[in-house]
Design a protein around this nucleic acid. Structure first.
Lengths: 225, 225
DNA sequence: TGATGTGAAGCGGTTCACAGCC
DNA sequence: GGCTGTGAACCGCTTCACATCA
């Protein structure tokens, strides 16, 4: 156990490990070794051990990890044992799709409000959640204890949305607009840039298909996509 | 100009560069230096030069890059000058939101069909696009020249969907289901795992807030999120 | 002079390999 | 014997720094 800085790559993997453990738990196993986990889910066992060791000595030599105990540890480490209240900015297709995305609930994220500038949208309900006027953002954030903002507006409005978010004191932001946003210090921004992902796929398709299945190195592909 | 293997990190950045150049072009500049680009969009100038140099000597010493010419090069390199036909598997919230996502058009991706197994959804139209029976996937792929599949089904069905996709001969797949999928060789899989991103944000929120704005290193944050 | 293209250094993350413990 | 935890080796990407050229 060290108290170094934890990389985001590690926290992403912790999330994956938890998911894997859930599957293992359903299957009924009480313990699991890093090797078994790695083999089953195409991970690297040393990396699993190293990632976990940042947070404590959860394993038992000669045995492996106790599935239930490790699940609890990871849940706590990832903060999934406490509710995170979310405000989604942009009540368009994406924003509304996100508003009842099941994954939010699973991660203990509650969508407290949607925001938009369009008077035609304000006041409407999306599932349980009401669309509020973006003008009242800061007030609603305060009143509803919102700690996470999701930016789901067109690219040209995203920076302004981010600044509003920061002014309201929010420290964690997930951005879906295809722009590079500039954050203030202390604010955590995660961007999911679908455009870039698509264009990168497009690059792949544009390459001469260099006949797969020949000259393939037999090594297992361990890297996450 | 080398002909090494191009990393995905590089292709992702090419997409970003193109986006930046579009902005520059709108502003009317004819040339731009790597330094100017870097300063404006918080990138690293050496990295821009290196990324571009993989594909040719596009720059002019003492001058920089010709904006229009470079845009054309990048468009071609990324394969954005040819149409990519897409099939979306899963006509739920996410699938339908994606079906008329503007970013697809911008990357020259055309959503040719949506697929679902639910008889209630089959035959319905989402915008211009019809929802087809997943059973006919391979046939529709052939008929409509679909080359890209988007997996937008619940996690438990994603691996089966991927296998169907591969059997139909598709080589480029974008996956939104929160599972690690196993691909055959020669198939390019890009996964966008919202659950993992959320849980990683949750981790950040769960950390003791170590008083921001103090001890911050003044260095510019160059890394993309 | 001013900016590119690039070898070399630097850095962070991954994998190896093994000592240590159950 | 089996498996963890971890220093060391390794690897790939980023950044520096400069020779090169318009």
């Amino acid at each position: 156990m060290k108290s170094e800085k934890i990389s985001e790559l590690t926290t992403n993997r912790l999330s994956v490990y938890l998911r894997c453990l859930n599957e293992i738990a359903v299957a009924g196993a009480k313990t699991v070794s890093s090797k078994a986990l790695a083999d089953r889910f195409h991970l690297n066992s040393a990396q699993i051990r190293k990632d976990l060791a940042y947070f404590g000595e959860f394993g038992v030599r000669g045995v492996g990890y106790y599935v239930e105990a490790l699940r609890n540890h990871l849940t706590k480490i990832l903060g999934l044992d406490r509710e995170n209240r979310v405000g989604i900015i942009g009540a368009g297709r994406l924003g509304t799709a996100l508003a009842d995305y099941y994954g939010f609930r699973k991660a203990n994220f509650t969508v407290a409000a949607l925001f938009d500038a369009d008077p035609k949208k304000i006041g409407k309900k999306v599932g349980e959640t009401e669309v509020k006027d973006i003008k009242n953002f800061a007030a609603v954030v305060k009143q509803d204890n919102i700690e996470v903002a999701v930016i789901a507006v067109p690219a040209e409005f995203a920076q302004a949305a981010l600044e509003r978010v920061e002014k309201a004191g929010i420290k964690a932001v997930m951005n879906f607009a295809p722009v590079a946003l500039k954050t203030s210090n202390g604010v955590k921004l995660k961007s999911i840039d679908l455009t870039t992902s698509l264009e990168s796929l497009s690059y792949f398709l544009a390459q001469p298909p260099k006949q797969s299945s020949r000259n393939v190195k037999p090594k297992v592909k361990d890297r996450r996509e």
